[in-house]
Structure formats: C-alpha cells, structure tokens
Amino acid sequence: MKPWDATLVRRLRDASCAALAGLWLAPTTGALAQAGLPSPVGAIGLGNRGWSAADTNREPSTTELEFSARAGVASDYIYRGTTLSDHGPAVGAAFEARFGALYGGMTAATVKLPTQPAGELTFAGGIRPKIANTDFDLGITYFAYPGERLPGETNGINYWEAVIRGDRHIGEQIRIAAGYAYSPNVSNTGAWSQYAAAGIGYDVPGQLLLQNLAVSFTAAAGYSWFGNQAAQLGGFPLPAYLNWQAGVTFTHKAFNLDLRYYDTNLSKENCFVFTGDPNARSGGRMNPITNPEGLVSNWCGATFVAKAWFAFN
C-alpha cells in the first residue's frame, strides 16, 4: 500500500464527514410501543435524523405532557446507506417529551467516525400537525460529536439540519411516507446538503398473528446531493448518490426487532471520498481532484443489519 500524504488524507477525511452524522435510533422510533401493548406499525425509515422521533400515527394529546424512552443495540449503525460504526455493533438510547403537536428530545449513540468523537448526541424539536389525513413532522435537529480527537481544519463536524416529513395511510394495511432534509453547512464543511426520500409500509393484519405481536414490512429509497465545500477542504462537492433499504419489524409488547438490508450506488472510490474511511486501501481508480491516491472503502456497500430495542410511552 502506498504511504498516505497526511495533509491530503486529513482534508479528504474532514470533507468526507459531511454525510456521516445521523440518528441511529431513528428507524426504530416510529414504532414506539406502550408498555404491554404491541406497536401498530414499524416506522418507514427515510434516512431519518429525527424524522420519525415519535410515533406520528398516534393522535397527540392536547391536555397533558407525554414522555417516551427507548434503548437498544444494532449489529451496525447505517445512516442513508453508509456505516457510522465501521460495520461494527452500536448501542443507543433516546428520550422525548410531547405536548399536543409539539415535541422535543435527545438521543445518544456510539459511533466510529474519522474524527474519532466519544459518541453522537442529537437534540431535536418541532411540531407534528395532522392535515388532511396526513401526519406531518416539521423539525430541526442539532448533531453534536463531543471529544473529537481529530477535529480537522474545520474544528469538528457539529451541525444542524431542518426536515419535513409526511406519513399517510392507504386503507388499513398500507402506508406511504415522503420527506426532505436540508442543512446549510453539513458537518461544518461549508457545503449545503439536501436529501429527498420516499417509502412504503405494509402492516400484517392482526388476526393473522399471535396475540400481542405486530409485524410490518417497510422499504424506502433516497437521494443525497451537496454544494461545494470550503476552499481549505478542496472546494469540491461530495458525490451525489442513491440509497435504498428494505426489511421487516417485529414488535411484542415493548420489545422490537428489525431485520433490514441497506445499499447504495456509490463506487468504492467515491465511498472513500464520501466517508473518509481511515481503513481505506489503495488499488482503485485515481481522481486528481477528489481521490488522487485511488483509495477504496467498503463503508457504503450492501449490508444486512439486525437491531433490537425496548420502547416505552
């Protein structure tokens, strides 16, 4: 393997972190279960960063404050098709408070990112109104990565993102969802980011299942694109790409299990540019601007993830 140029690798690594901040628990949180009762549905994951931070299918209370909490473990932390845990296991927990359509909450999760933070913290707030039989979620999330050992030229990757999402039922068993997210300075790189996604879900009729068991099949796809980064990071945009996922969620009372397949259309060379994988290897096609060493990464390929968590209202 050819020795890396330290300055170049640092620049690419800092720039690549733009897509690497996410909410590990988000695909689970649309399926918050009351203690002793099965969740009615599994959330449709849209590359969520708090988009599904609560069960949007529940009618909000207008007279009292409500709380929910969840915690669990996953075989991998996948965010919009790329791993945030170097394809290793991750743990996380979340807490949310709601009053009517208003909500606020936070999460904590383990990560393995190029900047080597101690973990990932997210703080989210917003409103979830119901308009014309569609459950909307309009919110803002701030992503913090405390204890970064390699903060790079931008002094860390903390940033915020605004999101809008809508969920709607079609009949009793079928659901559809769509969402859009925007950050003006993703991962503190100077570049804007945009993400659009849509998905579908099917809830198995309860009469076909055992008592206190709920089963949902869901699938979704999304597209990410970016503006130019700051000049000190190279001035080029990160590669736009598609990601997709499909799986099944089982819920028994407060326990949830999700089995899911993820993939993207990123090449191994663009995967390195996108993620800054510190374990990338040489041997790929060189790009004089974005990847002059021709380094390749497996952080963006096909992945199967098993995730288990407990959730309570």
Rank of each mutant, 00 (worst) to 15 (best):
D5F: 13
L8Q: 15
V9Y: 12
R10D: 12
D14Y: 06
A15C: 11
S16P: 02
S16F: 10
C17D: 07
C17G: 11
C17L: 12
A18Y: 09
A18I: 14
A19K: 01
L20S: 15
G22Q: 05
W24V: 06
P27I: 04
T28Y: 05
T29E: 08
A31K: 02
Q34D: 13
P38F: 09
P40N: 07
V41G: 07
V41D: 03
G42T: 10
A43P: 06
G45Q: 07
G47D: 02
G50I: 15
S52R: 00
D55I: 06
D55G: 13
N57D: 10
N57L: 15
P60N: 01
S61Q: 10
S61D: 14
S61N: 15
T62H: 05
T63E: 06
E64K: 13
L65F: 14
F67V: 01
F67P: 03
S68Q: 07
S68I: 00
S68W: 04
A69L: 11
A69Y: 02
A71T: 07
G72N: 06
G72F: 00
S75L: 05
S75R: 02
D76V: 10
Y77L: 04
Y77E: 05
I78S: 00
R80H: 10
T82W: 02
T83N: 02
L84N: 10
S85C: 14
D86C: 09
D86W: 01
H87Q: 14
G88C: 03
P89F: 08
P89H: 14
A90I: 08
V91F: 15
V91Y: 10
A97D: 07
R98A: 10
F99V: 06
A101E: 06
L102E: 01
G104C: 04
G105Q: 00
A108H: 11
A108L: 07
A108Q: 05
T110P: 08
T110W: 04
L113S: 04
P114A: 01
P114Y: 14
T115V: 13
T115W: 03
Q116M: 07
Q116N: 14
A118R: 06
F123G: 12
F123I: 12
P129V: 11
A132R: 12
D135K: 14
F136M: 10
D137F: 02
L138G: 15
L138C: 12
L138N: 09
G139R: 01
T141P: 04
Y142Q: 05
F143L: 11
F143I: 12
Y145R: 08
